[in-house]
Design a protein around this nucleic acid. Sequence first.
DNA 1: AACAAACATCGTAATATTGCGATAGATATG
DNA 2: CATATCTATCGCAATATTACGATGTTTGTT
Lengths: 109, 109
Amino acid sequence: MGLTKSEIFTDKQNKMAAMMKALAHPARIAIIQHLIKADACICGDLVEELGLAQATISQHLKELKNAGLIQGTIEGTSVCYCIDPKVWKQYKAAFDTFFVAYDNKNPCC
Amino acid sequence: MGLTKSEIFTDKQNKMAAMMKALAHPARIAIIQHLIKADACICGDLVEELGLAQATISQHLKELKNAGLIQGTIEGTSVCYCIDPKVWKQYKAAFDTFFVAYDNKNPCC
DNA sequence: AACAAACATCGTAATATTGCGATAGATATG
DNA sequence: CATATCTATCGCAATATTACGATGTTTGTT
């Protein structure tokens, strides 16, 4: 069927999966890393930096925007994209919590 | 076209995206959390626990296995799945590194 | 050997994602 | 106003993912 049965999972599980999904593509990883390195960025840079078409980059930016990870402010004819520090911290915290949950457990088999 | 152009990204970026992808589904999040809570598990449990068909659970387990996150040892007619502590640590470290990269940066816009 | 139990795999249908050309919209610049 | 530049959106094709019934495989039981 291809449709994820999100109703059988908890909100937290669905959100966690959505956060992972937002970063589950090398282009989006690359975009985030580029934004971090530049500490500011416009879309045009990314089109040159990565080897993808402008429409494709724009699509990935939209997904990162929907995930809340980045925000874009219009700056003349271009758009300045940057990471939302607040959401970033939320992601960081959520991932930390997830990975800390399994800590001093012993392998059973 | 639907085919990710992995050749234009670095190995690290591709791996990071693959790690995210392995956990980018609520069922797989739920499976991992269940394994952590139980500190050991067989597949049958999961079929009852989650509301998915046995074939579907098996498929998700396979993906987690391919990602290296879990390992299964045959225990009679059932299979005991549990988290691989070594790979878990690698994931944890990779995610930490990724999220720490953006730390004391100021928002630019 | 025959049967049951627990998983894995196959095949298939439905939906989602990825990528890009074409085009539309907004804002500068001459 | 006309034009150029930058980005968003549309529409499409190719591929990937998700879900599950049916079937296969392995192991244990009688």
